[in-house]
Design a protein around this nucleic acid. Structure first.
Length: 765
DNA sequence: ACTTCCCCTATATAGACAGCATGTC
DNA sequence: CTATATAGGGGAAGT
């Protein structure tokens, strides 16, 4: 079959030549060709539902760059992950040579959005795009192409409604833009296309052949009916992995828990090293291993990992710090590391293909639901990682069966199964409340009718058949009324007849990106007392469902109960049972389990803010360096958000206390280090502590110091020492030393020691 | 007396977006 | 309310 050639595309010559020359693409893949035929370059809305590596991204690039070059409009590319945003932007930068200006903006990086005006293609996350729409940035009018990547995320409970909200806002603005949606294969592609008013491209075509099968008892049963016996080494994963790497390939193993990831990787490493498998390169690997040791924040985790990396094996999960993760990913791409055992971290974002993908568990624990089978969609995401285009002759995805009858079951329910439909989660109370408030506060709706119209442009509305059924529409209207009432009672909204408007508080929530239910909890908590202790504040912050909660072990129950009793008056959110009931033991464990979870999480965060080492936090709470980064990010956002709420409500004491806690909780430092960490780039908790202990306690101390003295301190080299001193001198000269508002922590309020766990710094409380 | 094995029970269980301030991609 | 794998304890059986 003759494929459509790039040179025949209806796009400018420069772009055609560029694609052929720089991208090395001569001909289009069938799905790409179909996209062109369906009007990609005619400004038609389009949705592509195809598997990974079928060139959806190239089509998006072409559509965007073409629009920029020919029509002089801007383009937006919205993706689900920050890392993905940076990656796509990096790839897009090659078009800078055609004069196309590329920018990335995400919440973590950017403050002001005005500078984006000067760029042609803006790569961003869903949430940041929603935020841009909330602020009604004026350059939005000049956007001609909107690409939504991985749009099957509309199924996600939390993130999906944001996508729908984006679409509803774009519609409400009446912006004239081409919508291009990219999706993994989903069950209801037609429905999505209809919702988006888009042409549909569906295809199961793949650039590398994929063989799918199930392993059981020494045999791989392929879905096409063929089977292959491999050497059974007792352990299914081990057998499959050895079979792969002895054949010169690489394997990616997916499993359902972090501990499994470590355990499996260790077993594999032990086997490979003990039996002296020759395919690995020990010299190079020990370099990698050294790099990991060096960059790991937690020595424990680093050593655990470094040890097995020497054997060409690694584990990978979100508890690892970013740099360790990228070392692993890079070494896998370089083929030094032959096997990575990962949780789903790797299935979603990072592009890390391998000859063989092994799916160790097809079930996963869902809190509140027990063990649940993986959706077919996730299986497809994982199996889609199999086979590197142009490098491997084919890719393989192998599921592991625990019993003989499971073989057919897995073939039927995964390999040959239809992918699930994508279902909107927009019409739940929480999502409705957030997005209705957002629509009103940002001026997309000023009456109940507007709200209804706004909602009618969501997928949830279409899927609920509300457009077709008057009775259902009545129900929905009543539900919206309830939510409007809730927002009014909470003081976020005002209403006169049919007209609605956000209050100052409501506007604040909208810009803080805080959901109304959480904000309500925060405000009620703040009203309980004028001031409270650190535990009280940390515990209040943790009430947000955004904060991952630690589980309380049985043997910790009593310690935390005691802590609750001792701090009863200071806790701004009380459990559902009374103090007397706790003291008399008149309750079931389940009644307070969730509450204690929040307490434990707060305690961990305070340990962090009291400079507990990362190793101790890992030991005591099973919280890895990667998790700490997430917690730190969250604290930076949530604590300052609560401080802003307190400010809006004129609660000065709260505000003051929260403003120091914010820094302590985000950076994991005691108050005395705040000045150093806040003012000096390259100085975090560890270096700040080292500086402080060496007598450099303030920016002035450092400005007056000899860089040579500082370079001798642990964690400093010559360069960093000089940079820090330079920075300090500069800000002192300019009189710009930021003095964080500090108040005396009232330590005497709650002296309390928890448990006998080693390293806990809770005695401070 | 000591080890081994089996059964029962307790325990633990994935990931990662967003604000604002200040003065750069 | 929902599940399962694993580690550890305790006791019975085996050496």
């Amino acid at each position: 079959m003759v494929r459509l050639r790039v040179v025949d595309l209806p796009i400018p010559d420069v772009l055609r030549d560029f694609i052929v020359r720089e991208r090395g693409v001569q001909e289009l893949y069938p799905p790409q060709e179909e996209a062109v035929r369906r009007g990609l370059f005619d400004g038609r809305n389009l949705i592509m539902c195809t598997s990974t590596a079928t060139g959806k991204t190239l089509m998006a690039e072409l559509a965007m760059v073409n629009a920029v070059l020919t029509r002089g409009v801007k383009a937006i590319l919205a993706v689900p992950l920050r890392a993905l945003a940076y990656e796509k932007a990096r790839d897009l930068r090659v078009y800078e040579r055609l004069g196309v200006r590329i920018a990335v903006t995400t919440g973590e990086y950017d403050k002001d959005d005005a500078w984006l005006m000067n760029y042609d293609i803006v790569v961003t996350t869903y949430e940041k795009l929603d935020s841009l729409l909330r602020h009604r940035v004026d350059w939005l009018r000049r956007v001609g192409v909107l690409v939504i990547d991985e749009i099957h995320y509309v199924d996600d409970d939390k993130r999906g409604p944001t996508i729908e909200s984006i679409i509803a806002k774009v519609k409400a603005l009446g912006l004239d833009m081409q919508l291009l949606a990219l999706s993994a294969t989903v069950g209801n592609a037609e429905e999505l296309a209809k919702y988006l008013n888009a042409e549909l491209v569906v295809s199961d075509w793949r650039p590398v052949r994929l063989r799918e099968g199930v392993y059981y008892d020494g045999v791989i049963y392929y879905a096409d009916g063929s089977r292959e016996s491999i050497k059974d080494l007792g352990n299914p994963v081990l057998s499959l992995v050895m079979n792969t790497i002895l054949d010169g390939g690489q394997a990616l193993v997916f499993t359902n828990s972090r501990s499994n990831t470590v355990k499996l990787a260790q077993q594999l490493a032990q086997y490979i090293c003990n039996y002296g498998v020759k395919v690995i390169e020990p010299r190079e690997l020990s370099k990698v291993s050294g790099a990991i040791l060096e960059s790991s924040q937690s020595r424990l985790l680093g050593e655990e990992l470094a040890k097995i990396v020497r054997c060409g094996v690694s584990f990978h999960h979100a508890g690892l710090d970013m740099d360790v993760r990228s070392i692993i990913e890079d070494s896998f791409r370089n083929r030094l590391i032959r096997v990575v055992v990962a949780t789903t971290t790797l299935a979603a974002g990072v592009n890390l293909p391998a000859r063989r993908v092994i799916i160790h568990d097809y079930r996963r624990y869902e809190p509140g639901f027990g063990m649940e089978e993986l959706p077919v969609m996730e299986y497809k995401q994982m199996s889609g990682r199999a086979g590197r285009p142009g490098l491997d002759p084919y890719g393989e995805a192998i599921l592991i069966a625990r019993g003989e009858d499971e073989v057919d079951y897995l073939i039927k329910n995964y390999i040959n199964a239809r992918v699930e439909d994508v279902k909107s989660k927009f019409l739940t109370d929480k999502n409705l409340a957030t997005h209705i408030l957002s629509a009103i506060a940002s001026g997309y709706a000023s009456s109940v009718g507007d709200v209804m119209r706004f909602i009618s442009s969501t997928l949830g509305y279409v899927q609920g058949s509300y457009d077709k059924n008057e009775f259902l529409r009545g129900l929905l209207r009543r539900k919206i009324d309830d939510i409007l009432n809730f927002l009014m009672e909470s003081g976020f909204l005002e209403r006169r007849d049919d007209y609605v408007a956000a209050t100052t508080l409501g506007l604040l929530l909208n810009t803080l990106y805080l959901d109304p239910y959480t904000a309500n909890t925060y405000i009620r908590g703040l009203r309980v007392r004028e001031e409270t202790n650190d535990l009280g504040y940390a515990h209040l912050i943790v009430q947000s469902p955004e904060v991952p909660r630690l589980r309380v072990r049985r043997n910790e129950f009593d310690d935390y109960l005691q802590l609750v009793l001792d701090n009863w008056d200071y806790l701004l959110v009380k459990p559902s049972i009374t103090k007397d009931e706790i003291e008399d033991g008149e309750f079931e464990d389940e009644e307070i389990e969730d509450y204690l979870s929040t307490v434990k999480t707060a305690v961990m965060l305070l340990d962090w803010a009291n400079e507990a080492s990362e190793d101790d936090l890992l030991k005591n709470y099973d919280v890895g360096p990667g998790d700490l980064r997430v917690y730190g990010d969250l604290m930076n956002w949530l604590v300052s958000a609560v401080a802003r709420l307190a400010g809006a409500l004129n609660m000065e004491k709260h505000m003051e206390r929260l403003s120091t806690l914010r820094w302590r909780l985000t950076y994991g430092i005691r108050e005395e280090l705040m000045e150093l960490v806040i003012n000096l780039e390259g100085v975090g908790r560890a270096r700040a502590r080292a500086l402080y202990n060496a007598g450099f306690k303030s920016v002035i101390d450092i400005a007056n110091a000899d860089p040579k003295l500082i370079s001798g301190i642990r964690g400093f080299g010559d360069r960093l020492a000089r940079s820090v001193v330079e920075q300090a001198r500069k800000i002192v000269e300019e009189g710009k030393v930021v003095k964080p508002t500090a108040t005396d922590t009232n330590r005497e309020m709650s002296r309390q020691v928890i448990g006998k766990r080693r390293g806990s710094l809770l005695d401070y409380l």
